[in-house]
Structures are given as structure tokens and as C-alpha cells.
Design a protein around this nucleic acid. Structure first.
Length: 779
RNA sequence: GCCGAAGUGGCGGAAUUGGCAGACGCGCGCGACUCAAAAUCGCGUACCCUUAGGGUGUGUGGGUUCGAUCCCCACCUUCGGCACCA
């Protein structure tokens, strides 16, 4: 975890962190060597906003918040390893973020590119595609609708890893998360097909349906496509330029709106279809996106909905090239009402006519490759990661620009490129780095002449892409990590976090580790092997918690009222951890009462006499319950099923209470039951468990005890309730020995008075016996 | 539109994955203690039939099975992701 130091610990932090801590403590008691680190994701925009609004320096604001959060985190009683704390805005940290940037640059994985990028006009910065959300394309942080800007920016080549990012075989990650990442990468198989313009330029298209190539009746280019100007005829020039200008002015939202009504303009140019040499008109339309595939398509209106709508809107030819298996005659392009999506047989397709649907794509690709007109191809929706941010409070990108030598990396030994402290804010909200009088002036590492520093800083997801490695040795200064620590601990065994990171942090950090591997810096493929997501806590009104809604639950107040242990236990109890739920304030009373009952049980034992002889049967029952609870709690802790951990602990408490009333206080079995309860509670409620452990004069500390091990023989039930059904309906319940034979069970079931009544004196047709569970008599 | 997840008492949720539906807790009701209240403790608490006993019940409608919260089909609702992706 690397929380952002917002300055106030939220109930959501508690919900995410306390079960994770409990599980870490559980594993430590099981004998594992557990590292449970913490640190802060300390760069980012809120610090700058605070600076502009309240005139505090971002550094001061951030470190003040960190101090505050450290204190709040301490109230949780988590076993954080504070000696390994890492703070991403410390120069000792961001020096290595810069170092990684230089490594990536040297390996060709960081590059600069001019392109239309998403820009948040409120945050005054560009954003990565992953940070633009929803139908209305809004900024992930401030929810402002983004706009497009044509800028030169730094990118990381995450697309080189598109295929590998789809491989989850080494990971124990939730299916749901794998699916989100898989969809985000967006792999599709098809072909690249080479068309040619009249001037002889190559016009490459990507298609998933090469089998429909003979049905291509026109081409469509994205309005921003580089060939647009060249293919446009003199007659169409005015119209084309007007359309391009209009498209560029539109936001993505406008472009995708209007109920997907098709618009477009004929360029006056033509292209040759490689499969039949036919000349087909080239159009431009905003439904073709420059950012996907090659930014150009072959349009097959007979077999594609968008192309069909476009063809009908502009009166273009529709030519079917597939006859569906259930179609008696080939569809008529002139009259068909919708594109044909049937599978069947290729028609009107020259040498491939007659090819059945299941072979059509492969045979067409083979034909294209033989004829040098195309190749099989895989396309991904994933884009390279835009990491430039036009902000002050971030890691400076360690690059310079020299008039003579161009882009030059800052030499490694000059790192870190420090952020200047003496800064002034512009009323426009622009980055002070751009306007700093001296900071950006540097000497060129190549020629020694004057050079200008890059004034953009890095996306903060860069900091969090490698923080797990910095936790190993946060003050190490000979490298990003101490190699000895690294080989002992890495990769991360268990990682917990929110699902909202699926296509951001969690994809970036996977990419980052793979890139480091390929640069020889580490030797595994995945940064975190096991991952589990917690859900989110909503306000009591089922809405997202926010100050403006007034539905925020303050953990500090709950801790003051009920104590940290009760808050911890309640957060683990009140909902399924992986699902989250709306907050409910009344339930915490129940957990608080439970802890008071535990207190009463454990403190009464000291006053009681020892050496009490417990009746055999009661002793056995209690011992069984104890061992069953060990089994249940161990299993559920392993599996992140924390709510049933608490209910099992409550059940054991209730059993101990009943045993106390039955006079078992002072007996050995009772004392062992209490000891076990305290050990099982230690990960969940570390303070109370320790306190009671001390009161009972057990050897310090409860947290250093080994986790109890269940004896299956003791946990096994001696007697079972045998359910007796007649035709699947419960008619009786019998108490029987656990190892009752099938014959004996059937005999006893048939002897039941109520069963006999329901049999109405007739013979059963069949009797089903499920060992240890039920007898079903079928008539 | 496409992909995915989830629908169980008044509420949060449980059910060893095909075998007692509703564990545990909240809330509520009744009782004990108290002059009274709070706290605590005890009992009860899916719905319906006045009871013995029975009927119904896990979003809706079908199906498979001796038996379905669990498997299959169709549908409804809610939430999440993607979205003119070629």
C-alpha cells in the first residue's frame, strides 16, 4: 500500500488496511517472516491546489499531512514496519524514479511524440488515457471533461508488452480484475491489408474481417489521417478542409454523441483494392479514429453495421460477399435493410468464392500473404502510457534540450534533478517550473553549451509503479534497492487494494516490472503474485462518501468512542470484505458488546479456583468447539473471508459463556479455550488480546505465540443430526452417532413415527442415504 | 449496444459448493434486575394456517434431479467496465 497523504485518514483506509494487517499478523503467528510496509504516494495535484488556494508550499503541506497521517495510522495498531517507510516526494526516492526514466530512455522504452492528447483544463495538465473516464470523458481526479491538445509529450512503450500483459498464468489475481485488464488491452486478431492511392502511396488498413475484402466498396480515413491532404482532389478540397477543421474542434464527447449518426465527406480520391484491382472512393469520417488500428478502414457495408449506416447515408454501393447458411439466395445489396452478420459461404470473392465461413478468414490471409497484399495481424486497443504532466509537484523528468544536440538525458551521476523550493504561482495555475528564473537553465550534457530543462514532471503513477521495491531499503543510495534485501523478499507475495486500480496502477506496475526485467534489473515477470481487492464503504445513504454530501464517517471519532479494536473487528465483520457495503453505524455496538463479553470471560477466570473437574461430556463439547473454531478461523483468514472469522470468534465466546454458566470455570479445558480464543483474536483485536493475555499472566506476548493448530479428531462431531425426508420434504430429525451405517440410518429413519405417517403404509421405492447428513425416502 | 458481477428475513450477511435455508450480529418483542431508566442477563424473532401438525419461501418463469440459494434455459432489476475499436 502507498496511500496518498490527503491529511485525514478515511474510514476507507481503515477498511482496506485493518483486515490486511490482521492477515499479516495471522501469517506471522503461523511462523512466516512477514514484511508489512507503509509509505506515502506524496506527489500530486492536491498539494498544488492547496498551495494556490491557501498559500502553503506543496512540500510543507505534504509533509505536514504525512505527519498527521502517521499519527492516525498509529491508532490503528497495525504492524507497519516504519523503518522501511518510503515517501515518493523525498529526493532520495524520486532520484530513482528519474534513474528508471533514464534507463527506459536508453532502452528505447521512453520516447517523445507529438500527438493529440487528453488535457484536463481544470488541472492544467495532460492525462494518460487510463485517467480519462466514463462516457463523458472526464478527468479521473476532478471530473472535468477533458479536451484534446496537440502536444509533444513523453510516453512509455507499454504497448510492447500488450501480449504479455494478457498472460495471467503466474498470477493468483481475481478473475474480474484479469478481465478488466484483458478488455483494456483489447486484443483483436485480423489482417493488415495494403491498398494503394492513385499517387501510389500505401494505404494500410487493419481489419478483423479480411474474408469480406471483396465486398469493400469504399475506404474511410480518420479526418486527422496524414494522407488526407494528399488524396483530396482540388474539387473536394474546401469541403474536406471544413470537415477536418470541424472534427478537430469537437471534443471526444461531441464526436461520439449525436446517436452515432454518420457524417463524412468524399475526398475525391480513390484507392485500389488489392484483391480485385478495383478503384474505390476514399472518404473521411469521424467514426474512424486515428488512435485505433491504422486510422483507416476498408468499408464493407454489406457486413458491418457502421459501414452499412454510412453507405446508406451517402448512397454508396452495398455488395454482399457472404451467403448465410440459412439464406436461400445471396442477399441483395440494393434492398437489404441491415448488414448480414450470418456465417456461411464466401460469394462474389474471386478465387475464394465457395470457401466455407470457418475457413474464410485463414484462407484470405493466406491468399494475401501469397500475393504480397497483406499479412495476418494482431491489433491492441492499449495505448502507450503518457507520463508528462505540466505540474510542479512531481518528479522532474531528467531531460534537457540543446539547440545543437537536441534532446539529451541528464547523466545518471547528476541525479537527482531537484525540484526548486523557491517558486511562484501564476494566476493561470500553470506550472511554476516553466517560469522559474534559473531552474530550467542547464548545460548540455553533450556539448556543454546552454540547454533548457524539461519542465514537465512525471505522472505520479510512475512513483507507485516501483514503490514495493523501495520499501526494501528506503535509504539505500547505491541503487533503487539493496540487492540482498531484494533477493530475500521479492516479488511481493500478497497485495491488497481497490479494484479501481485495475487499469491504472495495477497495469502500470506489471508493465514496469517486465520492463525492468528486460533491462536486466530483476529476474521475475510479475511484481505481485497474489492479489485481493477490497470493496468500498459507501455512506449510510448508499452514496459515495463525500464532504459535500455530509455522509462521511470519521474513524477517529469511532476509535475515541469504541476503541481501535472494536473498529477493526467491526470493519472486518459488517460486510464481505471484497464487496464492501453502505456504512451502518448501529452494528458496531454488537462488536463492542462482544469484546466486553470476552473481557468478562477472561478476567473472571483469574478469580476462579483451579483444578475444577469438568463433566466429560461438557469438556468434550467445549474442546470440540475450540478446535472447530481454529479450523474455521484459519481457513477463513487464509481466504480473506474476514466476516466469518469474527462470527466464528463470537460463537466460541458464546460457547465459553455457556460453559462458564455450566460451572467449567477453573477447569483445564476452559482455560485452554480462553487461551485459544485470545490467540485467535490477536490478529483482529491486537490490543485487547495482549491486555487479557497479560492479565492471565501468560508469557509475553500473545503476538509471539504460534498460531493454534486444530486436531481434526477432536474437531470431528461425535453425534450428528440426521435429517429424514420423505419425497424430499423434511419429516423428522434424528440424533445419531457420526459413524452410523447406511443400514442403521435407514432402519431408524423408517421407524420414525412421523415418517410412517407420511408413508401412508406404502413401501418406499427408493431410499437415499447421504452419509452423516440425511436419509431421503422416495415413494 | 458489448462484456462482467450481484439479487437470500425489517437490516448487514451465513450456508462445508447439489443435502436441515437464514449461522453470527443489528434491529424489534417479551421477561429478569431496578423506585425508575440506562447498562447487563434470559427467551423469542422468514411468512401463512388459531394448535398437534402442516403449507409457502433464496429476483421472475421454466427445466434437470430422489433432492436446487447452488447446475441449465429465458426474462427482470441493480451495480461495474468498455463503447462508432474496424
Amino acid at each position: 500500500m502507498l496511500p496518498y497523504p490527503s491529511g485525514d485518514l478515511h474510514i476507507g483506509h481503515w477498511y482496506a488496511m485493518t483486515p490486511s494487517d490482521a492477515r499479516a499478523r495471522f501469517q506471522r503467528m503461523q511462523g512466516y517472516n512477514v514484511m508489512f510496509p507503509i509509505g506515502f504516494d506524496a506527489f500530486g495535484l492536491p498539494a498544488e491546489n492547496a498551495a494556490i488556494k491557501r498559500n502553503v508550499h506543496p512540500k510543507e503541506w505534504t509533509y505536514h499531512n504525512i505527519e498527521n497521517m502517521r499519527n492516525q495510522l498509529r491508532t490503528m495498531g497495525a504492524m507497519w514496519d516504519w523503518e522501511r517507510e518510503a515517501v515518493s516526494c523525498d529526493p532520495g526516492y524520486y532520484r530513482w524514479s528519474q534513474w528508471f526514466f533514464l534507463r527506459l530512455y536508453k532502452h528505447g522504452m521512453a520516447y517523445r511524440k507529438q500527438s493529440p492528447v487528453d488535457y484536463c483544463p481544470n488541472c492544467n495538465t495532460t492525462l494518460a488515457r487510463e485517467q480519462v473516464w466514463g462516457e463523458d470523458r472526464h478527468c479521473e481526479r476532478c471530473e472535468t471533461a477533458v479536451i484534446k491538445k496537440d502536444l509533444e509529450q513523453w510516453f512509455f512503450k507499454i504497448t510492447d508488452y500488450a501480449e504479455e500483459l494478457l498472460d495471467f498464468s503466474k498470477l493468483d489475481w481475481p478473475e474480474r480484475l484479469q478481465l478488466l485488464q484483458t478488455n483494456w488491452v483489447g486484443r483483436s486478431e485480423g489482417a493488415h491489408v495494403t491498398f494503394h492511392t492513385e499517387a501510389g502511396d500505401v494505404l494500410l488498413v487493419f481489419t478483423t474481417r479480411p474474408d469480406t475484402l471483396w465486398g469493400a466498396t469504399f475506404m474511410v480515413l480518420a479526418p486527422e489521417h496524414p494522407l488526407v491532404a494528399k488524396v483530396t482532389s482540388a474539387a473536394q478540397k474546401t469541403e474536406v478542409e471544413a470537415y477536418v477543421a470541424a472534427t478537430v474542434r469537437q471534443t471526444d464527447i461531441q464526436r461520439e454523441a449525436a446517436d452515432k449518426e454518420k457524417s463524412g465527406v468524399f475526398t475525391g480520391g480513390y484507392a485500389t483494392n488489392p484483391v480485385n484491382g478495383e478503384y474505390i472512393p476514399i472518404w473521411i469520417a469521424d467514426y474512424v479514429l486515428l488512435t485505433y488500428g491504422t486510422g483507416a478502414i476498408m468499408a464493407v457495408p454489406a457486413h458491418d453495421e457502421r459501414d452499412f449506416a454510412f453507405a446508406r447515408a451517402f448512397g454508396l454501393e452495398v455488395r454482399p460477399v457472404i451467403q448465410g447458411t440459412d439464406e436461400l439466395a445471396p442477399p441483395d445489396g440494393a434492398t437489404m435493410m441491415a448488414p448480414s452478420m450470418h456465417s456461411g459461404m464466401m460469394i462474389n470473392s474471386g478465387p475464394l468464392s465457395g470457401t466455407p465461413a470457418d475457413q474464410a478468414v485463414a484462407r484470405t490471409i493466406a491468399w494475401l500473404e501469397e500475393n504480397g497484399s497483406g499479412t495476418g495481424a494482431v491489433n491492441y486497443r492499449l495505448h502507450d502510457w503518457l507520463i508528462s504532466r505540466q505540474r510542479y509537484w512531481g518528479t522532474p523528468i531528467p531531460m534537457t534540450y540543446c539547440d545543437g544536440c537536441g534532446v539529451q538525458p541528464v547523466p545518471e551521476e547528476q541525479l537527482p534533478v531537484l525540484l526548486p523550493d523557491d517558486i511562484e504561482w501564476r494566476p493561470t495555475g500553470e506550472s511554476p517550473l516553466k517560469y522559474h528564473p534559473t531552474w530550467k537553465h542547464a548545460s548540455c550534457p553533450a556539448c556543454g553549451g546552454a540547454a533548457i530543462r524539461e519542465t514537465d514532471t512525471m505522472d505520479t503513477f510512475m512513483c507507485s509503479s516501483w514503490y514495493q521495491y523501495r520499501y526494501l531499503s528506503p535509504s539505500y543510495d547505491e541503487g533503487p534497492w539493496d540487492p540482498q534485501e531484494f533477493s530475500h523478499w521479492m516479488p511481493v507475495d500478497t497485495y491488497t487494494g481497490g479494484i479501481e486500480h485495475a487499469t491504472m496502477h495495477l497495469i502500470y506496475t506489471r508493465y514496469f516490472t517486465k520492463a525492468l526485467r528486460d533491462m536486466g534489473l530483476l529476474d521475475f515477470d510479475e511484481p505481485m503474485l497474489q492479489l485481493r481487492n477490497q470493496g468500498i464503504i459507501l455512506g449510510e445513504d448508499s452514496e459515495k462518501m463525500s464532504k459535500s454530501r455530509g455522509n462521511v464517517v470519521a474513524p477517529d471519532e469511532l476509535v475515541a468512542q469504541y476503541g481501535a479494536d472494536a473498529v477493526r473487528a467491526y470493519l472486518m465483520f459488517f460486510a464481505r470484505w471484497d464487496q464492501g457495503a453502505p456504512w451502518s453505524g448501529s452494528g458496531i455496538e454488537g462488536v463492542s458488546r462482544w469484546l466486553q463479553r470476552v473481557w468478562a470471560i477472561a478476567t473472571r477466570i483469574t478469580d476462579a479456583e483451579t483444578g475444577v473437574a469438568a463433566p466429560d461430556r461438557l469438556a468434550r463439547d467445549l474442546r470440540r468447539k475450540v478446535h472447530q473454531t481454529i479450523q474455521k478461523v484459519t481457513h477463513d483468514m487464509e481466504n480473506f473471508e474476514f466476516n466469518t472469522v469474527i462470527s466464528a470468534l463470537m460463537e466460541l465466546t458464546n460457547a465459553l459463556n455457556a460453559a462458564r454458566k455450566a460451572g467449567l470455570v477453573g477447569s483445564e479445558v476452559y482455560a485452554q479455550g480462553v487461551d485459544t480464543l485470545l490467540k485467535l483474536m490477536a490478529p483482529v483485536t491486537p490490543h485487547i488480546a495482549e491486555e487479557l493475555w497479560g492479565i492471565l499472566r501468560r508469557p509475553y506476548s500473545v503476538h509471539q505465540q504460534s498460531w493454534p493448530v486444530a486436531d481434526p479428531a477432536v474437531a470431528a462431531a461425535e453425534e450428528i443430526t440426521l435429517v429424514v425426508q420423505v419425497n424430499g420434504k423434511v419429516r423428522d430429525r434424528l440424533t445419531a452417532p457420526a459413524d452410523i451405517s447406511a443400514e442403521a440410518a435407514e432402519e431408524r429413519a423408517l421407524a420414525s413415527e412421523n415418517v410412517r405417517r407420511h408413508l401412508h403404509g406404502r413401501e418406499p421405492k427408493k431410499v437415499i442415504y447421504v452419509p452423516g447428513r440425511l436419509v431421503n425416502i422416495v415413494q
